[in-house]
């Protein structure tokens, strides 16, 4: 009977105590950090999707994925993205200096609805911090909003270059230049290439130029507004965030294109991601419209909104890069 009692105690100690210890360790761990779980958007996306914290106070995040590899980054931030591995905890401490609403998002293509994987962190003013300053809402004064441009139209022109892609280098080699008013960003960003072409055609300097040479000057004007650094940044952003749908060549043939097209087939909008290599469409579109589309999204077309994710500068770099699908710089 004594042996039986020992055996029963052995059982009691090894089983319930073990499980109880596990639960205690769990509750202790969770009290010190916020566990942020990532799942594919179809399975729920981020959990939790909304967090509240105070400015100036660190927030310890324990990131883990329940399915595939995800990435975590704060929108409009220079902090590098952190990979979120399946079943593995990655700790990350966030510290926001200023109050505001920040968006965190997935940086790894985890599925067709990857871009829906977003959440918000509301950072409240810290009473211990004197004179807190609200973060500027960056897109309130964006160009497309100030101009009130129509984003949901279907720009189209039949006036397109007939002898291939416009080339900025060819224009530069001619040794002449259009009036400087064309180079003001406010001008060319609010006009489509075809509008600029039409305006240039009326300028005296182009009287002896062929249509193709005038198109080359349009490319040259666009080239003057950007730089190799901006184009590199735009390309990186495009590759990471846009190419899955629009394709690396910009032809709207990315790996997710067919799925997006099927999903939004009955939405009444265009079928599939925009083809940036199509001159009829692209040359009738102004950079301001492209900026607006990127910030606001496609509204029912499957095009995500990137306003809370990219900075103003990043968006213009991206827009600049999109023109490389039409122009040779």
């Amino acid at each position: 009977m004594k042996a039986e009692s020992i055996a029963r105690w052995l059982l009691i100690l090894l089983l319930p105590v073990l499980l109880l210890a596990a639960l205690l360790l769990r509750s202790q761990g969770s009290s010190q950090a916020v566990e942020l779980r990532a799942r594919m958007p179809e399975q729920g996306g981020w959990t939790p999707t909304d967090m509240i914290m105070s400015a100036g106070q660190p927030l310890l995040l324990r990131l883990t994925s329940d399915d595939v590899l995800h990435g975590f980054a704060i929108g409009q931030s220079d902090e590098p993205a952190v990979d979120v591995f399946p079943g593995k905890m990655t700790e990350l401490t966030l510290l926001f200096d200023q109050p505001g609403k920040y968006t965190y998002y997935c940086t790894r293509w985890c599925g067709a609805n990857h871009w829906r994987m977003r959440g918000t962190i509301e950072v409240l003013p810290n009473p211990d911090q004197p004179d807190p300053t609200q973060v500027d809402v960056p897109n309130e004064e964006s160009l497309f909003m100030r101009l009130g441009v129509e984003l949901d139209g279907h720009p189209h022109t039949d006036l397109v270059p007939e002898q291939g892609r416009p080339d900025a280098h060819r224009a530069a080699a001619l040794g002449i230049a259009p009036p400087e008013s064309y180079l003001v960003p406010e001008y060319y960003r609010t006009h489509s290439p075809v509008e600029v072409f039409t305006a240039l055609r009326r300028e005296p300097f182009s009287a002896s130029l062929s249509d193709q040479q005038v198109w080359d000057f349009v490319a040259w004007i666009w080239q003057q507004g950007t730089s190799s650094e901006k184009l590199a940044e735009g390309q990186e952003l495009y590759t990471r965030n846009c190419a899955a749908c629009h394709g690396t060549s910009g032809a709207g043939d990315g790996v997710m294109a067919a799925q997006v097209a099927a999903e939004y087939a009955n939405s009444g909008h265009q079928s599939g991601p925009t083809n940036f290599t199509n001159p009829q469409r692209s040359l009738a579109t102004s950079p301001a419209i492209q900026q607006g589309k990127i910030i606001r999204g496609g509204m029912g077309t499957g095009m995500p909104y990137w306003g809370p994710i990219f900075t103003e500068e990043q968006i213009w770099s991206l827009v600049d890069y999109l023109w490389t699908f039409q122009f040779d710089y």
Binding site: L15, L18, L19, A22, T64, S65, D66, D67, P86, G87
Partner: peptide
């Protein structure tokens, strides 16, 4: 018992 507990309340990532 740990396998049952882990399966129910642990990570859904099998590996």
């Amino acid at each position: 018992a740990l396998a049952i507990v882990a399966g129910i309340s642990g990570t859904p990532v099998g590996s």
